[in-house]
Design a protein around this nucleic acid. Sequence first.
RNA 1: UGCCUGGUAGCUCAAUUGGCAGAGCAGCUGGCUGUUAACCAGCGGGUUGCAGGUUCGAGUCCUGCCCAGGCAGCCA
Length: 436
Amino acid sequence: MKIRPKAPVAYVENLKDFIGTRVQIRGWVYNSRSSGSILFVLVRDGTGIVQTVATKNSLDPDKFEMAKRLTQESSVILSGLVREDQRAPGGFEIELDDLELVQMAQDYPITPKEHGVAFLMEHRHLWLRSSRQHAIMRIRATVIKACRDFLDSQGFLLVDAPILTPAAVEGTTTLFPVDYFGEQAYLSQSGQLYNEATCLAFGRVYCFGPAFRAEKSATRRHLAELWMLEPEAAFYHFEDNLRLQEELVSYVVQTVLEKRKRELEIIKRDTTLLEKVSPPFPRITYDQALELLKEKGLLLEWGEDFGVPHETAICTSFEKPVFVTHFPAVCKAFYMKPDPDRPEVTLSADLLAPEGYGEIIGGSERIDSLELLEQKLRENNLPEEPYRWYLDLRRYGSVPHSGFGMGIERTVAWICGLEHIRESIPFPRLLEKMYP
RNA sequence: UGCCUGGUAGCUCAAUUGGCAGAGCAGCUGGCUGUUAACCAGCGGGUUGCAGGUUCGAGUCCUGCCCAGGCAGCCA
């Protein structure tokens, strides 16, 4: 048996820097093909997949025998010479001269053939090892980084909101209750109200974290646990808010197109429409949206909120994301500021992503008048006591301010062209389903 | 919660009018020195979701239940 020196560890994504060098790769067997005296083992190391080739001449006989018996997803540490080879998928190949088995996997459930959604979801912890899921998770990471880079560069400060929030302030049907030292608490649905406090402290802020919705929604665009980016800015009016949104979304999309070209190819995303995402975005008012829907045969009474078919009809009428503005106060939250020229509508806007993806952002200018906010609480039958701190914000140096919440998973689903939101997050929490 | 579709081998599916439950992949054994979801030969693998009913005979028809997927409702 030949004694070989230890080679430096390389990662598949950097192999081009190691052509002609002997390296060590640590990873998992993705697939293998044997042809008697020559053997091809595809190995993934988390950064990519590389084809390794072993022959009876290149590898000791006992290691060659072991290589032949390697099963899918067995963990290995291997070394060999890196070289370019057009016959290898990815263009690089490693000629094996050493191989160490870490653990032999047995009967890996996800085979290289097709599988149904239910089976894959049941094995989500293993499904994440596939190329497609790798591509989506890398794009998700880029979306999040782009959001933060953009806001940081615009002078926004990351100030996080609490996840555990005190007893019922609004209806409790859509909240997850938790026991908080014997007191009833709830998982946060949104950081928005706390953002208003930090925005009056720091000027321009955002929070980024999970939000929890206990709604009985079992659709392809709902999650019980989702991640939200929520900027809030003092002295921002309605118009400033929309401009920030279209600049943010455009930056995120263009960054993904630039940095995740390969991943978009792996998931076969047609990027024609994504390339058009740049400011300004088209805008229609709620009233105009009703007209548009009427033309398409979808009748809606003034004051009714859109259902999924309505959102789909509106967003497929535009090539870019579209703002629907000035929603009736009756179908929006109590804190949204009424339009001074027309108090029955609010200075609110939803941003609908194209290609049928629908709402990815909801936002508004907030009520800054103490009297009006107190009146809205009464109109909505909300108790004043839990809102004492929130009312304080209008008592001590109140200013016009605006903000919005962007759903990360819906944004990722749109950018990746996913059929269902469940692929946009590592471990989706769907209606009454929490495994794995 | 309602409607629609489905549940057959570890996975993806087939099984004509109610008439012997089958294929590919995965696994195992063997073969092959450039494979590309490799290929070739062979082997093992089944409570047809569960319970009941109709029938000489049920994977197939009927009833109930369970589970899954899709659509909708709901949805700061």
